[in-house]
Lab assay of single mutants.
Amino acid sequence: MISLIAALAVDRVIGMENAMPWNLPADLAWFKRNTLNKPVIMGRHTWESIGRPLPGRKNIILSSQPGTDDRVTWVKSVDEAIAACGDVPEIMVIGGGRVYEQFLPKAQKLYLTHIDAEVEGDTHFPDYEPDDWESVFSEFHDADAQNSHSYCFEILERR
């Protein structure tokens, strides 16, 4: 099963200049909980913004210009990325925008964090048809001392 995991502000903004323009430790914990011990696929820009392999996960970098870091697996196509994951129950696609666009048609599940923030962004989550998805989990949280904005975790499964 292919799943996408993303944090989205208003207007589906997911990033600005290779960074997330908010401070939500709870979302980072949600991300870790849902990706640990699963292969993660990301684009080169996302890889560069993280700066290191995510521990406890097979890191697969999709790029037309593969790098030389041998701590991760470099691939040039969506099919190659899927094959590099091996026989696993769930593959997690973690961004960025172009990689989400490439995998959305193949995805069966979306793990979304909806952030109540209007922020400037240069990267967006692809538009998706809500009628194609069923919400199977939703959990709202107010902003607090650690988390700069209110947010809602949601899991959607393709109908």
Rank of each mutant, 00 (worst) to 15 (best):
S3C: 00
L4Y: 15
A6L: 03
L8N: 03
V10I: 02
R12F: 03
I14M: 07
M16T: 10
E17L: 02
E17M: 02
A19Y: 14
A19T: 05
L24G: 15
P25D: 05
A26P: 04
L28K: 02
W30A: 09
R33D: 11
L36A: 02
L36N: 13
N37S: 08
N37K: 12
N37P: 03
K38T: 13
K38W: 06
P39L: 11
V40P: 00
I41L: 07
I41S: 02
H45A: 15
H45R: 02
T46V: 00
W47L: 15
L54V: 01
L54C: 01
L54I: 04
P55T: 10
N59H: 09
S63H: 04
P66F: 15
P66S: 12
G67V: 13
T68W: 07
D69V: 08
D69A: 09
D69K: 06
T73A: 05
T73F: 04
W74P: 04
V75D: 04
K76I: 13
K76S: 05
V78S: 12
D79F: 05
D79E: 05
E80Q: 05
A81L: 12
I82M: 07
G86L: 09
D87T: 09
D87N: 09
D87L: 09
V88Q: 09
E90V: 04
I91Y: 12
I91P: 11
I91K: 09
V93T: 08
G97H: 01
R98H: 15
Y100S: 03
Q102E: 12
Q102M: 11
P105F: 10
P105E: 09
K106Y: 13
K109E: 05
K109L: 12
Y111T: 05
Y111F: 12
A117V: 09
E118K: 14
E118F: 13
G121S: 01
G121E: 00
D122T: 02
F125L: 14
F125H: 02
P126T: 14
E129H: 14
D131G: 03
E134T: 09
S138F: 03
F140A: 13
F140N: 14
H141V: 09
H141Y: 07
D142R: 11
S148K: 00
H149P: 13
Y151Q: 14
C152K: 14
F153G: 02
E154V: 15
L156E: 04
E157F: 04
